[in-house]
Design a protein around this nucleic acid. Sequence first.
RNA 1: GGUUCCGUCGUCUAGUGGUCUAGGACGUCUGGUUCUCAUCCAGAAAAUCGCGGGUUCGACUCCCGCCGGAAUCACCA
Length: 480
Amino acid sequence: MKNVVTRFAPSPTGYIHIGNVRSAIYPYLVARQNNGKMILRIEDTDRGRYVEGATELIEDTLKWLGLDWDEGPLVGGPNEPYFQSERREIYLEWAKKLMDAGRAYADPTPEEKIDEYRHECNEKKVPFLYRNFRPENPPKWEPGMPIRFKTIPKSYDWHDEVMGDMHTGPEVLDDIILIKKDGYPTYNFAHIVDDAEMGVTHVMRGVEYLSSTPNYLALYEALELSRPLLISLPHILAPTGNKKLGKRDGAKSVTEYRDDGVLPEAMLNYLACLGWNDGTEQEIYTKDELVEKFSIERIQNSGARYDETKLLWMNGQWIRRIFDEQGARALYDRTVNFWPEEAASYPEEYRVKVLSIIYDRLKTMSDLKTMTGYFFTEPEIDVTAIVENKFLKKMSEAEIESLLKTAIQKLSDVKEWTEDKLQVALNELLEETGKKPAELFSLIRIAVSFAPFSPALNLTLVVLGREVSLARLNAVARSI
RNA sequence: GGUUCCGUCGUCUAGUGGUCUAGGACGUCUGGUUCUCAUCCAGAAAAUCGCGGGUUCGACUCCCGCCGGAAUCACCA
């Protein structure tokens, strides 16, 4: 396929949450895969729901995920403007053309009257269709009047790339509003006009638009436009219940995950594979792999439940992958905002070392805050933590004290404070004292960190350094 | 209620008539990796393929009916 043009067209009503980023990811993938263009268009036609700053939030979210766009806010393009509120003249022109052709009309009916019609139908238990109440002699249009499409009720067949062959009868077609009385277009009309003007070839959006599609088809026809490829994306379901994931169910914003230390690679990977797979058993995909392997045909046609646990697992995978493939430094660059406050006064090099021994324990970057405290602050000595430790509680305090002193002596004699030399010393200590690793190592580990867990003992000692390690051990020895 | 879509382990999924005694991943459980936590490795439990009919030598796969779930029916997108 050539000249592929896709778009992501959110309305600026707040943040983008995980339930709806997928309709940005898939169009992006399709555009890049086909050397096509991706358009970002802001559908701000509902002034009541407009949220200040939402556009920036959308831009930030996309940029963070690594989804860039070829046309739209910030980058411009040949079809400017990309805010629908600035394109009102265009929609009005198209609507006028429709009126001239007798396919649209100005509707003078007051809204209360429409409510009455609707009510009437509900009473009679017949479907409410405005076309049955079409005003007989619509007035000439003037500003302040809504414009409605004059539909021709008939059956439609079409193909949805995800849902398959579709068919509906005339009962779903109605005289939908094209231009609201406030002069802004409805989504229903605006997106058709914009997609046509911008040359959009693939319309990807949530399945909630599937039932309106016949009306769009009627519009394409009346406007003599060729149909773009229609691609309905199934909903992402909330963790519980069968509802689609929405802000009401506590759907977190994408940026919230960023702030919690989820990597964009993991987020993109997880979301792209929620409801799509390439048929192989691969689970971890880079953005480039997704671009290469993505296919519309393999998008699932049923909703997928959002599972944060799996996202977090994937994030752990990505943390390790970045460390292993790009090095400690590359991973460190992603951690700047996630260290405990006290870490700021330590040299960067030291933080990199801490990261290097702790990274494989991280699920999110923000775990650094809770997991690395003892590297940056003197832990509070808590003798009970030692005495009541499950490996140490069978020893008397005197025994513990003497064991600790032996250990201090041995470690003080270590010439080079390195990973290997420390391990040798630790092993010798084991032999000399006749203690089990569980006893000896637990004692030293707790004395040096007072943390519920820490990396391998020799590594912890290396990073802490000789001085700090011995000082802490001595302090504990004095406290017993 | 009308219209439309969907229905394989708890979850995400593989599966296009025989190779499925249904595969993988997350999660769970067990064991191993000199202490802890995690990683990693090995293993286990976990799906009568929504239900009932049919077609066929043979159906998770095709057809029909039913049931269940969802979406939509706005001057919101």
